[in-house]
Computed example of a mutant assay.
Amino acid sequence: MARYKHYDYNQTKMIPLRFSDQIQPGTFEYTLNHVVDNDLDLSVFESRYRNDYNGAPAYDPAILL
């Protein structure tokens, strides 16, 4: 299984901002986030990454979408 860099929408950034507080239900951004996290099958990307035991963790395709 591919290793990905950890990300968390609830983490704070350089400015005190949480992504989950910025998107509101009913908006395009909220819907897009829901579709990427819950409806898309991103397993096609798993076979591309060969960093199970060596190499740096990759960015999760969900965060790139």
Rank of each mutant, 00 (worst) to 15 (best):
R3T: 12
L65N: 10
Q22S: 11
N33E: 10
E29S: 07
N10Q: 12
N38S: 07
F28N: 05
R48M: 04
K13P: 09
N10Y: 12
V36P: 01
V35R: 06
N54L: 06
D39A: 09
S20V: 13
D39C: 09
L40N: 00
A2Y: 12
T12G: 08
H34K: 14
Q22N: 08
Y4P: 03
M14W: 14
M14E: 15
M1N: 14
P16I: 05
Y9A: 12
S43T: 14
L32F: 10
F28A: 11
G55F: 01
L17T: 10
A62L: 05
D37N: 13
R48P: 00
A56I: 00
H34R: 13
K13A: 15
N10C: 08
P61Q: 07
H34G: 00
N38Q: 06
Y9W: 12
V35M: 09
E46F: 02
L42C: 07
Y59E: 05
N54Q: 03
D41K: 10
F19A: 09
F28E: 04
P25G: 04
A62H: 02
N10E: 14
E46Y: 05
H6C: 11
A2P: 15
L40F: 12
M14T: 14
Q24V: 13
Q22V: 12
A62G: 03
Q24S: 10
L42H: 06
M14D: 15
Q22W: 06
D39S: 07
V36T: 08
V44P: 00
P25V: 03
N10G: 11
L65C: 08
M1F: 10
D52N: 04
Q22P: 01
T12S: 13
Y49W: 05
L42S: 04
T12V: 15
S47Q: 09
T27Y: 03
D8W: 07
K5D: 09
K13Y: 12
